[in-house]
Simulated assay, not measured.
Amino acid sequence: MPALSTCPCGQDAPYAACCGPLHRGETTASTAEQLMRSRYTAFVMHDAPYLQQTWSLTTRPARIDFDAGREWTGLEIVRTTGGSPFHSEGTVEFRAHYISGGESGVQQENSTFSREAGHWVYVAAL
């Protein structure tokens, strides 16, 4: 992927300094929100291996299929509970904006996260 001026996750940092190190396995997410943002960026970039790696072993699908006609256009974090470096569980409510078939849409979800082997993972949507 070419160098991005701003990471797709919405943070004011280039991809190489924001979600890139997480995707490359150079570091792991320190909060549930950071993991959520990196997973959104992985959906933008169709990075199935990262999504699989950061999905709970208890709920992980066998494969991830991407909607080829969907273009993710922005992430909005609505609220978080728990999920700090000092928690073992947390939730992140978000709105992921997209365009599909020329129409704008929003996927709103309240996702649960937990730690497995010391690392934050996505568990499920509430």
Rank of each mutant, 00 (worst) to 15 (best):
M1T: 12
P2W: 11
A3R: 08
L4Y: 10
S5Y: 11
S5V: 06
S5W: 03
T6N: 13
T6P: 05
T6Y: 15
C9N: 11
C9V: 05
G10V: 05
Q11T: 10
D12T: 05
P14R: 10
P14E: 09
Y15V: 01
A16E: 14
A17I: 02
C18V: 03
C19V: 07
G20K: 04
P21C: 15
P21K: 08
P21M: 11
P21D: 05
L22I: 12
L22G: 04
L22P: 08
L22M: 08
R24G: 08
R24L: 12
R24K: 07
R24A: 09
G25M: 04
G25Q: 01
T28P: 04
A29I: 03
S30H: 14
Q34D: 13
Q34R: 08
M36S: 10
R37H: 14
S38Q: 12
Y40E: 05
A42W: 00
A42V: 02
F43D: 00
F43P: 00
V44S: 00
H46K: 07
D47L: 11
A48G: 06
A48I: 06
P49Q: 12
P49R: 03
L51K: 03
Q52D: 12
Q52M: 15
Q53S: 07
Q53M: 10
T54G: 12
T54W: 12
T54H: 07
W55K: 05
W55M: 13
S56M: 01
L57S: 14
L57T: 14
T58R: 15
R60F: 13
R63H: 14
R63F: 15
I64R: 02
I64E: 02
F66A: 15
F66N: 04
F66C: 11
F66W: 15
D67K: 06
D67Y: 13
A68N: 05
A68I: 10
G69H: 11
R70N: 10
E71W: 07
T73Y: 11
I77N: 14
V78Y: 01
R79S: 15
T80W: 01
G82S: 10
G82C: 11
G82M: 13
S84Q: 12
S84I: 09
P85T: 09
H87G: 13
H87P: 04
S88I: 06
E89L: 06
G90P: 01
G90C: 00
T91I: 00
T91W: 02
V92I: 01
F94T: 02
F94C: 14
R95L: 11
H97A: 07
H97G: 10
Y98L: 08
I99A: 07
I99N: 03
G102E: 15
G102M: 13
E103G: 12
V106W: 02
Q107C: 12
Q107I: 09
Q108M: 04
Q108G: 08
N110Y: 02
T112E: 03
T112G: 06
F113T: 00
S114Q: 04
E116G: 05
A117F: 10
A117H: 08
G118M: 14
H119D: 06
V121L: 00
Y122P: 14
V123D: 01
V123K: 00
A125L: 10
A125Y: 10
A125H: 10
L126F: 09
L126T: 09
L126K: 06
L126P: 03
